[in-house]
Design a protein around this nucleic acid. Structure first.
Lengths: 154, 154
DNA sequence: CAGATTTCCCTCATATTATTAGGCGATATC
DNA sequence: GATATCGCCTAATAATATGAGGGAAATCTG
């Protein structure tokens, strides 16, 4: 897709920041905040989506509020020859809510939400024969997901 | 806040899944998808927000499209006595777009977006005297952020 | 350079959606 | 049983979104 670096002007940036703060903002309000008319703001937004800058509008869900009081970050190192199988297993465990493939010894870093340590054990058992894992429980989140700086791009 | 486990019925679940797929869905469409009238769907949504189940509506931004072709996951181990200072520094580096405090040797796991390896070096230098770091570059994302299972909660 | 084209913006009319008001049925409580 | 609460509905009203048409500035072309 459009992964090329796109030129964002100040209005684009203001749009992104407004949306990051409330993705359900009305077009009217968005237009006001960025200093355009509603149809122009709508067109700008459409273009940001079309260009793949905005990949999706989504929600920030509180795992604890839906029954998952514990979160863990698990590093996964597949045993020789098991890389693809491990990746498949990771994708098929729905409690794994995010996973990146990374350089280094650990091939995957996954974020899990679980109801209990026992459940965590159960999930890790699913890859136990095919990978080594290293688990860290999340205690707090000093930086919640936020936008990076959008200006000063070259 | 309302971090207590809340009862989600099937309609709540359907609402959350619809919103996770498109947070800007119209109330009319949302109501249709979950089988309620628009005012009822709106009230349900309001309650999910009020209860803190939905913490925010936000966007999924493509870092590469805004100038950040590289992403890294950095584990940070503060040196003795430096924990709070390191946390402050992490919060103050805007390219760190997410950071969790975790159990274990590494105290923080941070997600960074950068334009280049040189920039990554520069950022890591900011904590170099106060912490040890271990960096892994993200190669792919086999599981993009998704909702956990919302049913079968006890 | 002049003219044509493109891009981005606007206003206004029309269409669509959101909100509000009022009411109903089911369930819980006294 | 009577009353209150909750969650749902429809319809009216208010607000917003979209489409149509047009203008100004920038860019392109001969």
């Amino acid at each position: 897709m459009a992964n090329e670096v796109q030129s964002l002007d100040e209005i684009d940036q203001a749009i992104l920041e407004a949306l990051a703060g409330n993705a359900r903002i009305s077009l009217k309000e968005l237009a006001q905040q960025v200093g355009l008319s509603s149809p122009s703001a709508a067109e700008r937004l459409r273009r940001l989506e079309e260009r793949g800058v905005v990949k999706a509008f989504t929600i920030d869900l509180d795992p604890a509020a839906v029954g998952y009081p514990l979160q863990a970050i698990v590093r996964v190192r597949p045993l020789p020859g098991q890389l693809h199988m491990v990746e498949r297993i990771i994708q098929d465990i729905p409690e794994i809510v995010e996973c990146d493939k990374v350089t280094g010894e650990d091939c995957f870093i996954a974020r899990l939400v679980v109801r209990s340590m026992a459940e965590l054990d159960g999930l890790l058992d699913k890859v136990a024969e095919r990978a080594e894992t290293n688990t860290a429980m999340i205690k707090a989140s000093p930086v919640k997901r936020r936008l990076p700086p959008l200006s000063r791009r070259k």
